[in-house]
Amino acid sequence: MITAQKNQISATLAELYNDAKYDYLKMMKGAAKSIFGPMKPEDFKEAYLSISEDQGVELVKLIKENDLQHIVEFGTSFGISTLFLAQGALETKGRVVTTELIESKGKRAIENFEKAGVADLIEVRIGDAMETLKDHDERIDLLLLDGWKDLYQPLFQMLEPLFHKDTFIYVDNADMAESRAFLKVVGQNERYQLEPLFNGKVVLIKVK
């Protein structure tokens, strides 16, 4: 059963990555708006902004090797990273809670989860993550930060009481200025161990 579900996830991911190949112009269109003002999430409502396949494979490995079950994601987009999380959760009998600001993206992601046959493993919360996750009260084994970078710090602080020894926080786009500022603050706390991955694009934080 798990093998069949994993194959279904892999097929859906292949389709999404194929679509993402034609996503560059949408990303550039969104980025171009920053010339006339600050970038906003709405500027990228049609862009995939996905993690790489190599990152996805490593995420699955991390979940399986550490038996991570309670997974929270900030930044669903169209659900590529979420599907990798679900693939790992299949092995650990876990679940994924993911949040997406843009309603149209959240709805597309739900369709992708249904196509992949893992919608029952994923709870999608649409809206501002500071609101959709503020009442979250389950322990967090893995937190994936892959949304708007200025929310990394406040979201981390809000969810911090739910961390435990051996919780992992996976920080994507760690090489961006706001991410670096956030990581500098976290790195000053002896409770956390930081490990750069993928040439610094990702930083994995482990709770000691």
Rank of each mutant, 00 (worst) to 15 (best):
K6F: 04
K107V: 14
E42F: 07
I126P: 01
L90E: 05
I71Y: 06
F74V: 09
E190T: 11
K134W: 03
V118T: 08
G79C: 04
A47K: 05
D146C: 04
Q153P: 00
I80E: 08
H136M: 12
H70A: 12
N173V: 02
A119C: 03
L145T: 11
D23A: 12
F84T: 02
Y24C: 01
T82I: 08
Y17K: 09
W148S: 05
D135F: 02
L62C: 05
K165Y: 11
G187T: 00
E53Q: 15
K61A: 13
T92K: 09
Q8A: 14
I80M: 07
I110P: 00
I140D: 02
L155F: 11
A86N: 00
K6L: 09
H70C: 10
K184W: 02
G187R: 07
L142R: 01
V97P: 00
D67N: 15
L49H: 05
E114P: 00
A116E: 04
L101P: 08
H70Q: 15
N199C: 09
I71G: 07
E53W: 04
I169R: 01
G117E: 02
D175A: 09
T12L: 02
S179T: 04
G56T: 06
K61H: 12
E42N: 11
I63Y: 05
E111A: 14
K33P: 08
Q8S: 15
G79S: 05
F74L: 14
P196W: 07
Y152R: 05
P38W: 13
Y192C: 06
T3W: 00
E160C: 08
R180T: 01
L13Y: 09
E138Q: 14
M176N: 05
H136C: 06
K134E: 11
H70Y: 13
E114I: 15
I63R: 03
L121I: 10
V124F: 03
E114W: 00
A119Y: 01
F168S: 00
G106V: 03
E131A: 14
R108T: 12
E65Y: 06
I80D: 07
P154V: 09
I71L: 15
E195R: 10
A181R: 14
D137F: 09
T3M: 10
D23P: 11
L142Q: 02
A119F: 04
F44P: 10
L25I: 13
L204Y: 01
D172R: 06
E73G: 01
Q188V: 03
K208W: 06
G37F: 01
M176W: 15
L49S: 06
T12N: 07
D137L: 08
E65N: 14
Q193A: 14
K61Y: 12
K29Q: 12
N18I: 06
F163L: 10
E53R: 15
T3L: 11
P41E: 07
L143V: 09
V96Q: 08
F78G: 00
Q87C: 10
Q8E: 14
K165P: 04
E53S: 14
Q188I: 00
K26L: 13
R139K: 15
G30S: 09
Q193I: 13
F74P: 04
D150W: 10
R95D: 12
F182S: 03
P196G: 00
L59K: 03
K64E: 13
E138S: 13
F74H: 11
Y22C: 13
A177T: 12
L13E: 03
L59E: 01
I140A: 01
R108M: 12
